[in-house]
């Protein structure tokens, strides 16, 4: 009787322990995934949408790249749909088409954009198509993955099929390289950029001695970045009296609590640092691009 009671009690305790253990297990935070948009490659002064709509081979190549992402269970932003969604008519009126491309990328909210190009090669030995795909980080401009492949030569005018042939294996290899870059980002932190400028009428500049240390502002900012950039990694593109541009700044992927790290947190910490030096500032954030204006 006693044994039965002890057994039941132990089982109950074990079960309740399991229940509590389950309750206390933290739910893993889902990583925020980058948004990716596949766009056609255009030369200067060319309009992306017109090029895409008039070139069937390019459309095949773009679709093949998108299909590769779909096969990996990853959704991409549809370029044409997004362009239509944007107030494109107004954008089309812009004379500078290069800025239009930049505008579409920025307004799309894509973190990564993939330029796709398909070129027909005609020769007496047969025809082929060369496909080039390049992935860029939309904020830093870093190239993440590049692949080129030319289809075998055929005596054929069916360039759509040749484009498909060129894409065979290319997309898989391209995605594998891109994934290895993602792995590197998870390991070494996300890439962000930071631009520090001064408001009109500001009484300080980068060469001003601020705070108690007597060191100039740019030196103090760099020292702060050394301590606060993820694994101390940052790269300064240039410093002038009125501007500091950090073109690569690594921020952690997750915070100490295991939540996704927000760039706004980094901005907030940086502003606190400036406040400690007696400087007021404002900030703007666009994706992983951080703009600090010191008043």
């Amino acid at each position: 009787m006693n044994n039965t009671f002890s057994f039941c009690l132990s089982a109950l305790l074990l079960f309740s322990g399991k229940l509590f253990a389950q309750e206390s297990t933290p739910t893993p935070v889902k990583n925020i995934q980058p948004s990716i948009m596949v766009i056609p490659f255009v030369k200067e002064n060319q309009d992306m949408r017109t090029i895409l709509e008039s070139d069937i081979n390019l459309r095949v190549a773009v679709s093949k790249v998108k299909e590769g992402f779909d096969n990996r269970g990853f959704n991409t932003i549809d370029f044409r749909a997004r362009v239509k969604q944007l107030n494109n008519d107004k954008a089309m009126e812009l004379e500078n088409r290069t800025s239009l491309k930049q505008e579409i990328i920025e307004l799309s909210g894509a973190d990564i954009y993939i330029e796709t190009e398909a070129t027909i090669n005609r020769s007496s030995g047969g025809n082929s198509v060369t496909v080039i795909v390049t992935a860029y980080d939309a904020f830093s401009g870093f190239s993440l993955s590049n692949k080129v492949k030319t289809s075998p030569k055929f005596y054929s005018e069916n360039y759509e099929k040749l484009t498909e042939k060129a894409c065979e294996g290319l997309v898989e290899e391209f995605l594998n390289t891109l994934q290895s870059k993602f792995d590197e980002i998870v390991q070494n932190g996300r890439i962000a950029t930071m631009s520090i400028t001064f408001a009109e009428g500001s009484t300080v500049d980068m060469d001003a001695e601020v705070g108690d240390s007597g060191e100039i502002l740019s030196d103090q900012i760099e020292q702060w970045l050394e301590k606060n950039a993820y694994k101390g990694y940052f790269h300064t593109q240039g410093v002038t009296a009125t501007k500091m541009l950090v073109d690569e700044l690594r921020v952690p992927f997750k915070d100490d609590n295991g939540n996704n790290y927000r760039i706004s947190k980094f901005a907030s910490e940086f502003r606190q640092f400036l406040k400690g030096l007696g400087l007021e500032s404002t900030r703007d954030i666009q994706g992983n691009k951080l703009f600090i204006t010191i008043n």
Binding site: N31, Q33, P34, R72, G73, F74, Q179, F182, I185
Partner: peptide, 8 residues
């Protein structure tokens, strides 16, 4: 969970 799914 030997490798991560595509993405971060």
């Amino acid at each position: 969970q030997i490798i991560r799914k595509f993405g971060y």
